[in-house]
């Protein structure tokens, strides 16, 4: 069983500490850290190396300016009414009314490793997923991939999740080997 490192980016102390208390008692969670939205988030993420970030939707704009956040699965915390566009940025959300079990199951869903999931029925990558994979193998960041393919960083993250799910390979180095073995990339492109 993998154990997960969780980071909470939440301006409200009550919500942050409530979530931290729930997650600290969860055996699958190795460590829970809280980061204040006005802290140096990129630095804190590099130190804490989370597997998942729970971030309040009211500070979702932080995701635009923090490259480290782009490559980590996120769960939106909804504690107030937010614009639909903001809500749509999150594939997984919890609210202040969510039960402890709902919070845990959202985390499990987001961070489950390929071996813990059922294997994907189709292992065939879509054309877009192949495009993303090639750029990942060439060392592009999510932001650079988004710009190159003219899609949003969150769509890139979604493609990357699908690629991991379909190939069963999680590391960038492993995905590079996959791209080479499947002739998706040649020596000129590496």
């Amino acid at each position: 069983m993998n154990r997960y490192r969780v980071v909470i980016i939440e301006p409200a102390t009550l919500i942050a500490e409530g979530l931290q208390a729930i997650l600290a008692a969860y055996p699958d969670v190795e460590r829970v850290s809280c980061i204040e939205p006005n802290a140096d988030i990129a630095h804190q993420l590099r130190i804490t190396e989370p597997d998942v970030v729970l971030i309040n939707m009211s500070v979702a704009h932080l995701m635009d300016s923090c490259e480290e956040l782009e490559s980590i699965p996120t769960i939106g915390i909804q504690s107030a009414i937010v614009a639909p566009a903001t809500q749509n940025r999150f594939a997984h959300t919890i609210t202040t009314f969510s039960s402890a079990e709902a919070v845990k199951s959202a985390i499990r869903e987001v961070v489950a490793t390929p071996s813990e999931r059922s294997y994907a029925e189709s292992h065939e990558l879509s054309e877009r997923e192949r495009d993303v994979l090639v750029l990942v193998a060439r060392g592009y960041t999510n932001k650079e991939i988004a710009s190159e393919l003219n899609i949003s960083p969150h769509t890139v993250i979604s493609h990357r999740k699908n690629i991991v799910h379909k190939t069963g390979i999680r590391s960038v180095a492993g995905l590079t080997v996959y791209a080479v073995l499947n002739k998706l990339i040649d020596s000129e492109q590496l």
């Binding site: 490793t113 590391s171 180095a173 080997v177």
Partner: peptide, 10 residues
């Protein structure tokens, strides 16, 4: 752990 699993998958 991820990388070990990746080697096996490859």
């Amino acid at each position: 752990n991820d990388r070990t699993n990746d080697i096996a998958s490859l």
